[in-house]
Structures are given as structure tokens and as C-alpha cells.
Write a protein that binds this DNA or RNA. Structure first.
Length: 336
DNA sequence: TCTGGGGTCCTAGGACCC
DNA sequence: TCTGGGGTCCTAGGACCC
């Protein structure tokens, strides 16, 4: 099993079209203005040396690295670059599953996966001028985590035999699927490391974290992952549009107008895909950062713009709190 | 530190039905 | 006149990922 991950993908694509940026700290995020609300999508390694990383507010990034070049997110360009990379990977004879713009799993199972990995790195570099790292594992989880140890521009292999020596003493959130919140809860139960989580009682975790997630976390800690590489084309289950406003909205009539606007954009997406929406969900983030959602089911699934607009307004009417708003979102769930 | 935009899946509680 | 137990569906929220 191979996991391929492009190195500093967005920043690397930007450097390709502006070679004078090579070697400089580059930060891609928001609309490229670090005085506005927004977060870092990708920072180049030069910027990461200043503590700038994905998800960091742009304003904080500008403070940590004032000399960085800040660039807006340019989706079309990254999509095009991503397509080139994925087309190159598809030349490998293996089932492939794409995860976002810059990652893919390849279900290769041969005698010399390192050689295949090096071949992939060479081919991607030749055809796109981009660097990638390849992780090798006995399943998707191992391959995915291996990539992190191979960066940048390397190859790394994890196996059942090396799993605990590499990951045993690491914090639980080193695992793919455990984030900040779950790590904190585990710490509260006296579980700090991957090895400790592996030794935990699945039934005890089921009580605390739910019947599915509890036992799943223990399997994760053992480096076990039965999930298959899915080669069939990705089919979205929902489509959404959302906007964080630079200035908070404190007039509810304005909130209504903005929801209608977002609903129209979602309706256009839905119509373009020709897949009827069954339910419309409106998301409101109040100042400072409380998020609420309410939905409205469509009687009969539809792609009609007016029906989607009306459903969004009906969902909005379910919000009883009319305090200042900083973000609005509208999501259409497709009929299943 | 002051928090984007686009997604997925799981959980818990209530409604409803038999 | 106050009420069981089980199943399923819907909804809102939480957590995570890229």
C-alpha cells in the first residue's frame, strides 16, 4: 500500500509560476491579504521555519513572518496542477483513491515497494516539476502516517513490525482520526501515548466515546485499518457554500439577503450536477464563534432554484437568536 | 492565536409507530 | 388514567480531515 502526498502543494504550485519566489517564505491563504480574516492554507518550508502552518490565522502568520509573500488561494490553478499529478499517478498499474488535491492511495502490492515509490517520485517530478513524498504501509493508516516521516521528498515505510518502535511513544493525536479534542479526553482517562491507547480496554473506551469510535481508536493505535482503497469515482453527498464576513452582520434583514444569495449559489451547483437536493441546511456562526445549524427537508427532492431558496429561508426562520453574525453557510444534501 | 471553505461520519435525543 | 419495550427515522451537534 502506497500513500502519495505532494510537498507544500499550494506553495509549490505558486513558486512554479513565479520562480523568483523560490527559497522565500510563501504563505497561501484567504484572499492573500494578511490584515483580513482568513487562515493559512499552505505555508512553504521557509515560512514553516517561522512557526507558520496550515490553519493559522493570516494575521498571526504575518506577525510571525513579516517578510513572507502572502498569496490568495487560486483554486483553478491548483485543480489543474492536481489533475496533472493524478494523471501521472494513474499510469501506475494499481487501484487508486484520491483524497483532495494533493494526496492519493495506491493499492500496490509487490516485492519492492520502495522501488515503486522512488519511481513515482521521479515520474511526478519529471511530468509536473513538483516534489512528493511516498509512504509505504501494510494498510492505508500505516501508509498515510509513513508519509509524514518521509517528508520532504522522501520515502518511508511502516510495518506491523516497526509500528510501535516508531509510534508507540508518540501522543495519541499523531494518529489519523484523533484530533485535539479526543486526545484531551484520552489524557483525562490516563491515556497519553499510542502504546497506552493500544493497551486500553475497548469496552471501557466504548462507554466513554461510543460503541463504534471507542473500539476503533484501539485498533488505530495497533496500526490496524481494514478500510479498502476505493477506486470508484468520488460522489459527493452534499454541496455547500459559506462566507465569513469581514464585518459582522447585525441586521437580520441583511442576514436574510445573504442567505438567499448563498442559496442561489448552492442551487446553481445543484442544478449543474443534475442531482436533486433532499434537504437544505443553514449554518450561522454568531459573534464571537458559536455555530448553530438548522435544516429544512424538501417535500420532494428537487434541483429547482426557487424551492431551494425557500427551503433555506424556512431553515433560517428556525433560528430564534438574532444576534450579530460573522459567518453564514448553506448546504444542500443530495437525495440518497 | 482569534479562528477559511469544503467536506465526511458518528452520536444522542426526540418523535413516531406497533 | 397513566403507561412497556423495541424499532426506525429525523435532527442538531461534535469531531475530524484536506
Amino acid at each position: 500500500m502506497l500513500h502519495v502526498d505532494l510537498d507544500q502543494f499550494l506553495a509549490a504550485v505558486e513558486v512554479l509560476r513565479r520562480p523568483e519566489l523560490r527559497g522565500r517564505p510563501v504563505v497561501v491563504g484567504g484572499d492573500g491579504d494578511p490584515t483580513k480574516r482568513g487562515v493559512v492554507s499552505t505555508a512553504s518550508y521557509e515560512a514553516r521555519a517561522f512557526g507558520v502552518h496550515s490553519g493559522l490565522p493570516l494575521r498571526t502568520a504575518a506577525r510571525r513572518c513579516p517578510d513572507a509573500v502572502f498569496l490568495p488561494v487560486d483554486r483553478q490553478v491548483y485543480e489543474a496542477a492536481s489533475s496533472e499529478v493524478m494523471a501521472t499517478l494513474r499510469e501506475i498499474d494499481a487501484v487508486m483513491e484520491v483524497l483532495g488535491w494533493d494526496e492519493a492511495f495506491l493499492a500496490v502490492d509487490n516485492d519492492d515497494p520502495e522501488a515503486t515509490a522512488r519511481q513515482i517520485r521521479r515520474r511526478v517530478r519529471e511530468s509536473t516539476d513538483l516534489d512528493c513524498t511516498v509512504g509505504i504501509g501494510q494498510n492505508k493508516l500505516q501508509a498515510k502516517l509513513a508519509t509524514g516521516f518521509g517528508k520532504p521528498a522522501g520515502v518511508f515505510r511502516l510495518t506491523d513490525q516497526t509500528w510501535f518502535e516508531v509510534l508507540g511513544d508518540r501522543p495519541t493525536d499523531a494518529l489519523w482520526g484523533i484530533g485535539h479534542k479526543t486526545a484531551k479526553r484520552l489524557t483525562g482517562m490516563g491515556i497519553d501515548t499510542v502504546a497506552q491507547l493500544a493497551a486500553a480496554d475497548p469496552r471501557a473506551l466504548a462507554m466513554q466515546l461510543g460503541p463504534t469510535i471507542g473500539p476503533w481508536l484501539v485498533r488505530l493505535a495497533h496500526g490496524q485499518d481494514p478500510s479498502p482503497v476505493v477506486g470508484t469515482p468520488y460522489v459527493a453527498r452534499s454541496r455547500s457554500r459559506e462566507t465569513t464576513y469581514q464585518h459582522d452582520l447585525d441586521d437580520w434583514d441583511e442576514v436574510r439577503r445573504e442567505v438567499v444569495h448563498l442559496a442561489q449559489r448552492v442551487a446553481n451547483d445543484v442544478a449543474a450536477e443534475q442531482r436533486p437536493a433532499a434537504r437544505i441546511v443553514v449554518k450561522v456562526r454568531y459573534v464571537p464563534f458559536t455555530t448553530r445549524t438548522h435544516g429544512h427537508a424538501l417535500g420532494t427532492p428537487t434541483t429547482e432554484v426557487t424551492a431551494i431558496e425557500q427551503a433555506a429561508l424556512a431553515a433560517l426562520d428556525r433560528f430564534t437568536e438574532r444576534r450579530p453574525v460573522r459567518l453564514l453557510g448553506v448546504r444542500a444534501e443530495f437525495a440518497r
